[in-house]
Every structure is written in C-alpha cells, then in structure tokens.
Simulated assay, not measured.
Amino acid sequence: MNNLNDEMVYGKNPVLELLKSGKPINKVLLLTEGPGGRNQEIIPLLQERTIPYQFVDRQTLDRLTNRERHQGMLAYVAAREYASIEDILTVAEERQEEPFILMLDEIEDPHNLGALLRTVDAVGAHGVIIPKRRSVALTGTVAKTSAGAVEHVAVARVSNLVQTIKELKKKGCWVSGAEAGGKDAFEADLTGPRVIVIGSEGKGISRLLRENCDEIVSLPMRGKVTSLNASVAGSVLLYEVLRQRGVSQ
C-alpha cells in the first residue's frame, strides 16, 4: 500500500461487497444526497458493524478518486483486522504477564502511530487502543512506518475511550496519563497491570479522559522546548515501564 488508491474501494457494488465480506474497514465516505438518496441502504450495514461514516460533497469524492466512477461511495480499507479489548488481555494472559497496554487519544499523524506500534512490539506490550473517530486508523502509511510491527501488535478500535478505561480499571489495570505538570515518570511506580495514555499531537489528553486516569506522569524537560513528539514521548514511557518491570521478564 504505497499510495492512496491502494487503500480505497469505491463504487456502489464494490463497497457493498467489501462490507458483506467482513474485511476490516477504517471509514466510509458517502455522497450527501438527503434521506431519500441511493446510498441510504448501506447505512444499516455500517451501523451494524459500527464502521465510522461521513457524508461529503461530490467534489470531494471526485478529487479522491481522480474523477473515476465512484457512484457516491468510497471505503478506506484497513491494513489488518482490528482486535478487541479481550483479545489484548488474552495476549497478556497467554504470556502469563500483567497487562501492559498503550492507549492513544486522537493521534492523527500516521507516522506517529506507526512508530508507536514499532515500539509497542519492541517492548513486548500487549496491545494498543485507539478511538474510532478523530484518530488515524490502520492505514497503509501506518503499516509501512511500523516496519512490519502492525502484523504483530493487537490494535483495538473503540467507540469510547473513557468507558474503555473504566472497564480496564475493573479488570485491575492502573491508568497513567502522560501530560505536563504530573509527577516525574522516572520516579513514579509504573509496575503492575498498566495502561499508558498518550494524547494528541496538539491538544494532549482530552479533559474527560485525563480526569479518569489514576495518575498523570511527565517526562522531565531540561531544554527550552516544552513538549515532545507524541511517538517520542510514548516510546520513552513504554521503555520506562519495561525497565521497571525488569527486562528479564
């Protein structure tokens, strides 16, 4: 998947068949036609599979498809199947390890997600959680940037990060959000069942998600720049969790 067209399927019948096949889909774009439009029949299928969809104008679809015959429908195909939260917890159970999970709040840069997947694989974390909306999905660019890690890391895509955090807490996980103004991450106790939350490149962790974290940790900053790239900050924290757990484990 080296270009945009490799990640797209368009045309009424191709998109419908893609949906019926059960293959992973990141998002569907539909032509704005009103309640009686021809693309209305696809919406129940999208809702049944909880696939995000968006209505756009004809000019947008023409531009994305180089004016080929799209019939008002375009689907972005995922680079691989998404996992569930239970799948991620099962990975930890099978390894006889305490859960070690990375949660990403509205990361939009595919290169950041790809780099983080590579680090998750390197440190032996059990999976990644991303939101269905306002976040980059498992695109071809993400797969390429991950240098193959996308094939080895379980990625769950959920509708509500806050609800997911609450569910993980019930299963014994401790949630550490990365944000400025928190306790020094190198002095914090990051052992035990752990979820590390990294916020978006511009806004950081959303308010409601931050309020549901058990603690906020920060990386010490000694220079004049006040923040780090999301993939850099996430990678440093993931390795700190690995260090505290003991590399031998």
Rank of each mutant, 00 (worst) to 15 (best):
V225G: 00
A143Q: 07
G181Q: 03
L102M: 08
A122K: 07
E97H: 15
V241F: 10
E106H: 13
K170T: 13
S248P: 11
E48M: 12
I196G: 05
N26A: 12
Y10W: 15
T119Y: 05
A75N: 04
R95F: 11
L19T: 08
R67D: 00
T164D: 07
D62C: 12
I129T: 13
E41D: 13
V217S: 01
A115F: 03
Y10N: 03
V142L: 05
L19M: 08
R207K: 14
E81K: 06
R58D: 15
R134P: 13
N66L: 11
R67Y: 02
E33R: 02
E211G: 01
A92V: 15
A122S: 15
A180S: 09
T50G: 02
K183S: 10
G204A: 03
S176M: 12
L29G: 00
V77G: 07
M73K: 05
N39W: 05
L18D: 08
A125Y: 12
T139Q: 00
L45G: 05
Q244H: 15
V232G: 02
L74S: 04
Q244L: 15
A147H: 06
V91C: 07
I216Y: 00
T119N: 04
E151P: 00
D6S: 01
L116M: 14
S206K: 07
G148H: 11
Y10Q: 04
D121Y: 07
G37W: 09
D109I: 13
D105H: 03
V56H: 06
F55S: 09
V9S: 06
E106W: 13
E187P: 00
A115T: 10
L168N: 06
R207N: 09
E94D: 13
C173R: 06
S159E: 14
